[in-house]
Amino acid sequence: MSVPALMSRTSFVELNARERARALLDDGSFRELLGPFDRIESPWLARQNIVPQADDGVVVARGTIGGVAAVAIAIEGAFQGGSTGEVSGAKIAGALELAAKDAKAGKPIRPVLVFETGGVRLQEANLGLAAMADVHAAVVALRRHAPVVGVIAGMIGCFGGMGITAGLVSRLIVTRQARLGLNGPEVIEQNAGVEELDSRDRPLIWSLTGGEQRHAVGLADDLVADDADALADAVRAAFERGQPAEHQSERIAFWRGRLERLPATPEGPALRKLWMGDRP
């Protein structure tokens, strides 16, 4: 890339959730729903002496993508690790439910989810988990009528119940700075021991769950540079592709077949060699 091109790049990873939602919507179309001045914050955090945030860490914005009505839902990773609480989860599920209603009624809608989270907020535990089940239900209901696009940019990545959500979207876009999984490395080390996974071994962690690895084996669809314009283009292109023939989470025979072809030890490069031949 030329120096001027590099200079004109805007890192998407460095943007906050509001800026990310704005960057993915067409210029000038951003309109936030339940913004900070609506003050619907977590009813549970202050009771545990934790300072809440006015938007509970989720930005929901209407606008257009490629001229078509859209909703961008972006998680703010800097607040409580992007964790899903009752309010932040209800904002995500509720927006997806409304998008499904529109899509079912024949109104075009382009829903995009920007993940940045470790999963359920343990300070809201069962209500975060309930909200996560609502999010899963809403994605499955919505994608019957309109493709749902997911973006994982990094640096936190997408884990826990939201990793399951990422497994449900119609098309998943990642950067090299993204990570995707169910259990974060610290949680695995705490539960299974350092011999199972050394969470401080960063190269190992990235070789298992990093964006490039996920893309190479087909657990992510597009690998895009950390550039706001490039990501907006990729999101628009994903919607223009329309529905996939089959969602990855429906392809039972294919993925079970792959699980019969595993390397001797669970290593990223070895898996790539085995799985790349039939990249989905």
């Binding site: 899963h136 239900a137 499955v140 209901a141 019957r144 990793g163 399951i164 959500t165 990422a166 497994g167 449900l168 995707l180 999984g181 169910l182 259990n183 949680v187 695995i188 539960n191 299974a192 199972e196 996974l197 298992l208 769950t209 084996v217 657990l219 969602h247 990855q248 989470s249 429906e250 039972i252 993925w255 792959r258 699980l259 595993l262 669970p266 290593e267 990223g268 898996l271």
Partner: peptide
């Protein structure tokens, strides 16, 4: 008791395996 916490699980896409199960139940319901 939990999802399986392991290195192999992460590498081979346990998040997608769990998504497949949730998807199947939700799709059945719908």
């Amino acid at each position: 008791p939990s999802q399986a916490y392991g290195r192999a699980e992460e590498l081979y896409g346990i998040h997608l395996a769990c998504a497949a199960a949730a998807d199947a139940y939700a799709s059945a319901r719908l």
